[in-house]
Amino acid sequence: MGTHALDRDLAELAASARAALVREIDASGAWAVDPVWREAFEAVPRHLFVPYYYVGVRGGYERRWGENPDPRARERWVRGAYVDAPLATRLRDGELVSSSSQPSLMAMMLAALRVRDGDRVLEIGAGTGYNAALLAHRLGDDCVTTVDLEPEITEAARRHLAAAGYHPVVVTGDGARGVPQRAPFDRIIATCTLSSVPVGWLAQCRPGARILSPLATGLIALTVRDAGHAEGRFLHTPAYFVPLRGADRHEEGFVEWGGVPRRARENELFRFLLTLTRDTLEPREAYTLWEREGQPRRERYGITVSGEREWAWLDDPEGPYAWPLR
């Protein structure tokens, strides 16, 4: 098969797989609050952002390329690029350092970001560039900045974005420090897990800006009041992302369960509380609280940033249950 025929075949396969993914996300209700994102997912070709990805094979990994001359291998690769699942895209010494997130979760996060036309958005964690492309499709290249610590990741993201026809600003730097030269921002979205909200982000936001970030296996949505104050609650959904690499990364340690029942250890909401209170409560204390308060869901928790202080809380920022994050 000639090169042009191969490209045409690949494009047709991708269009069909992308349409199927959009229907699946639509059915999930992920963008129900902002269905305009449907158009972005219909337009942006995810397979250009994952020219290779890793999938589990008998405990190991294999790469799959779209350039394979075998049409069956190409079809598997393309359909794999459009599954509603996260795809590992970069490993280092067996550790995951970059991935393409689950599309329905990306759609839900983008809808929850509540962007408006003309908003300037900073993305923390460039990944493959796919999320930045979705933002650029909605808002335009000039309104989108994405940053990552790893030069290899930002270089690859630029290539993928250019191949798809998008040219947002891609910065190599510590996402924990933001991108002050591109501020002010109306929205900040992180695609990596934080242990606390970096203070520098607030100073780079306009009053009323919204920050959406994974934290403690959840998603926190903060409204910025000014350069020193922000507050908000967690969304209902669980979220697991690659940790932020840079100044504010927190290393997790061994958990001593201390008599916590197995049913709690395996309960996703309890593990959320345990992660959120990791530096304050012992697991047994967290379990006692969790049971006493009726096994609270994520929406009952929130975070407040006030100057140099930052704390998580249950139900009320000034209530009896509060735990410092830094």
Rank of each mutant, 00 (worst) to 15 (best):
R120D: 07
V121S: 12
V121A: 05
L122A: 06
L122M: 14
L122I: 09
E123P: 04
E123H: 10
E123A: 13
E123M: 15
I124F: 01
I124H: 04
G125L: 13
G125D: 09
A126V: 04
A126T: 15
G127M: 06
G127N: 14
T128N: 00
T128A: 04
G129E: 05
G129N: 05
G129D: 12
Y130L: 05
Y130F: 15
Y130W: 15
Y130A: 11
N131F: 01
N131T: 15
N131P: 00
N131K: 09
N131H: 00
N131D: 10
A132E: 09
A132P: 01
A132W: 01
A133W: 01
A133D: 10
A133Q: 03
L134K: 00
L135K: 08
L135A: 10
A136Y: 03
A136D: 13
A136E: 05
A136M: 05
H137Q: 11
H137G: 11
H137I: 03
H137T: 15
R138V: 09
L139T: 04
L139K: 07
L139N: 08
L139D: 03
G140L: 12
G140S: 09
G140R: 13
G140Q: 05
G140N: 15
G140D: 08
G140M: 08
D141T: 13
D141A: 15
D141Y: 07
D141V: 07
C143A: 15
V144H: 05
V144G: 04
T145K: 04
T145H: 04
T146W: 02
T146C: 03
T146N: 03
T146M: 01
T146F: 01
T146I: 10
T146E: 06
V147C: 10
V147Y: 09
V147F: 06
D148G: 06
D148S: 04
D148N: 14
D148M: 01
L149I: 15
L149A: 14
L149M: 12
L149W: 10
E150V: 02
E150K: 09
E150D: 14
E150I: 05
E150F: 15
P151C: 12
P151N: 12
P151T: 05
E152T: 13
E152D: 14
E152K: 07
I153V: 15
I153W: 08
I153S: 09
T154E: 10
T154D: 11
E155M: 06
E155S: 15
E155F: 02
E155N: 10
E155T: 11
